[in-house]
């Protein structure tokens, strides 16, 4: 049979030679292998002190962006909810009233914007679909919890806090 990887070895069960039957050379060989590892550089990462860098394309918890004047970008068009393969996003739309221009950029806004984090598969399609530059997946980890209701993230957890700008720790779009 032709070997594609050229790594396969044909196994033959043959009688062991005298030195192989002694086992001691083989044991010595094994000891040499393990002692070499004794002095090798360790692979351990001291977790709370040292943290591993995420990949540049990492997709974590979502964020609903504000614009430069602190107004929410989302216009509740529902494209993210439609594009979501896991059907995790639920949006209730509302009309902007007079005097709320400083809160919402568009005339229509999301009165409630919920993502079920247990359903979300962090594919990033909502981010791709968004025409208003509103939803992004950040580098933050979605936190664990003991209660299932904690995993339905409303606007309180998703909207970018006021006064924060697009700083790299919490907000980093994975494509320019």
């Amino acid at each position: 049979m032709y070997s594609l990887s050229k790594k396969s070895k044909v196994v033959v069960k043959k009688e062991m030679t005298w030195s192989e039957k002694l086992y001691l050379p083989a044991i010595f060989q094994g000891l040499m292998i393990t002692i070499r590892h004794f002095f090798k550089k360790k692979a351990t990462l001291q977790y709370p002190e040292q943290k591993k860098e995420f990949a540049a394309v990492y997709r974590g918890k979502h964020i609903l962006k504000r614009d430069e004047q602190g107004r929410e970008n989302c216009t509740a068009c529902g494209l993210c909810a439609v594009s979501c393969p896991a059907e995790a996003i639920t949006i209730v739309a509302a009309e902007r009233q007079k005097g709320e221009e400083h809160l919402y950029r568009e005339e229509k806004y999301a009165a409630s914007y919920e993502i079920n984090m247990l359903r979300c598969i962090f594919c990033g399609l909502c981010e791709e679909a968004c025409p208003k530059d509103a939803v992004y997946l950040t580098e933050e980890l979605a936190p664990a919890s003991f209660d299932r209701t904690d995993f339905i993230f409303g606007k309180d957890k998703l909207v970018q806090p006021l006064g924060t700008s697009a700083h790299p720790k919490t907000y980093k779009p994975y494509k320019k």
Partner: peptide, 10 residues
Amino acid sequence: KVSAFLQDRI
């Protein structure tokens, strides 16, 4: 410790 060091751990 020895087992860890022999297995590339700390």
